[in-house]
């Protein structure tokens, strides 16, 4: 008898065990892949950042706790690179947002060839960074570049050694960066502008609002979430800036235009100081995460 009643109990237990764990089983492969592909390398980087691992020497990696981080804090070249990155970040993203907003507002009205003009705006985004770097190298060339040619033609001076002068190298990179990515900001903001209901503007007009008041009190507040999203993308991107710096100046003259990403690359793949390079990478990751978390927080506050 016992045997007869025991079987269904066991079956029920098994079924409820399956019911409880089935979702876990379904999710497990995805979690496994995520752990292997995303979290795994991240963990490896965190662990390596606490090590002295010099691939140039035959010495085995050593655990040195926070010494790499301490050395970074004391490294004047790192702070110089950080300063350059922040100049590019604030100047570059700031200019892109201002210019992007202006062009988006101009494109958000009906005119002939609007579609063509909007499509043309996409071109810089689609160009490979290597090509952009080469193109601006030619533009900035002291002897043959069109920029100095125009300056000479207008008798404004003899031109500048744009990429070879400590005073202009970083600024030159910033201009190339703004040129390439302002259209991206424009397109995203244009989409944001087009999602604002025309009724809101009609109501503002009925209330007698001036164009400036409409922009300040209606357009800007409604566009703010889009601005934050596009700023988020650009901040993440500019903070990692490598290609334009590498192609235009190589960080020079001296370290006048060296970015944190380039400095990390130099430590990793020229000096092969894997511990120090990964510690630099971790610091970058933390900074960009903090900036992005604050931007997301701002967005949530706006929604609330």
């Amino acid at each position: 008898m016992n045997r007869v009643t025991a079987a269904p109990v066991k079956g029920r237990d098994f079924n409820s065990w399956i019911d409880k764990r089935l979702p876990v089983l379904f999710v497990a492969p995805v979690v496994g892949i995520l752990l292997t592909l995303a979290i795994g390398p991240l963990l490896f980087i965190f662990i390596t950042s606490f090590m002295s691992w010099e691939l140039v020497s035959a010495a085995a990696p050593q655990f040195i706790w926070f010494r790499n981080y301490l050395n970074i804090v004391l490294d004047s070249r790192f702070w110089n690179a950080m300063k350059n990155t922040l100049i590019l970040l604030v100047g570059g993203v700031g200019l892109q947002l201002v210019l992007g907003l202006i062009t988006a507002l101009l494109l958000n009205r009906e005119f002939k060839l609007k579609r063509v003009v909007t499509s043309l705006f996409l071109i810089p985004i689609t160009i490979a960074p290597v090509v952009v770097g080469f193109q601006w190298r030619v533009i900035y060339h002291e002897s043959f570049g069109p920029l100095n040619y125009i300056i000479r033609m207008l008798r404004l001076g003899n031109g500048f050694a744009w990429l070879a002068d400590t005073r202009t190298a970083l600024f030159s990179i910033l201009v190339a960066e703004v040129w390439q990515w302002t259209p991206f900001v424009t397109i995203v903001l244009l989409a944001g502008l087009q999602s604002i209901s025309p009724r809101v503007y009609e109501a503002a007009n009925v209330d007698g609002a001036t164009p400036w008041q409409v922009f300040r009190r209606v357009t800007l507040p409604l566009l703010k979430p889009t601005i934050i999203i596009v700023a988020l993308f650009r901040v993440m991107d500019v903070f990692k800036i490598f290609d334009l710096v590498f192609l235009l100046t190589g960080g020079g003259p001296g370290t006048a235009s060296e970015s944190v990403s380039l400095y990390t690359y130099i430590n990793g793949f020229r000096y092969f100081s894997m511990g120090y390079a990964t510690a630099l990478a971790v610091i970058q990751l933390l900074i960009v995460t903090i900036i992005c978390m604050n931007l997301v927080k701002m967005m949530k506050v706006r929604r609330a």
């Binding site: 002068d165 003259p253 001296g254 006048a256 020229r270 100081s273």
Partner: peptide, 21 residues
């Protein structure tokens, strides 16, 4: 060993001196 590292540092500071930094 580390010639690339030694040379890069030398090159960097020579460059900084040449540029007036």
């Amino acid at each position: 060993p580390g010639a690339g590292n030694y040379q890069d540092v030398l090159d960097l500071y020579i460059n900084r001196a040449l540029s007036g930094e």
